[in-house]
Amino acid sequence: MTKLSDIKIAIVDDEPSIVTMLQMVLRREGFHQLYAASNYAEALDLAARVVPDIVLLDITLPDGSGLDLCSKFREYGNPHILFLTAKATDLDVLRGFAMGGDDYITKPFNPLEVTARIQARIRRLESDVSMPTPAKRPDPGVYRYGRFTVNEAEGALIVAGQPVSCPAQVFQLLLHFCKHPGIVFSKTQLYDKVWGINGQGDDSTVLVHIRRIRERIEVDPGNPKLLITVRGLGYKLVKESQA
Rank of each mutant, 00 (worst) to 15 (best):
V25P: 00
V25G: 02
D45Q: 14
I18N: 13
P52G: 02
L22K: 10
N39D: 15
P52L: 11
R28E: 15
V19Y: 05
A37T: 07
R49Q: 15
Q33T: 06
Q33P: 12
T20P: 02
R28T: 10
A36T: 06
A36I: 00
I18K: 03
I18V: 14
F31W: 02
V25F: 03
Y40H: 14
A37G: 13
D45T: 15
D53L: 02
S38R: 07
V25L: 01
R27C: 05
A41D: 13
Q33W: 12
M24D: 03
Y35P: 01
E29F: 10
L34K: 05
E42W: 05
H32P: 04
H32I: 04
R27T: 06
R49S: 15
Q23V: 01
A37F: 04
H32K: 14
Y35V: 11
F31C: 02
S38N: 09
I18F: 10
R28H: 13
Y35I: 08
Q33V: 08
A43N: 02
A37S: 13
Y40I: 04
E29W: 13
M21A: 09
Y35L: 01
I18R: 07
V25T: 09
S38F: 08
G30F: 12
N39T: 03
N39A: 10
G30L: 13
V25W: 07
A43Q: 11
L34H: 13
V50L: 00
R49F: 04
V19L: 09
F31N: 01
D45Y: 07
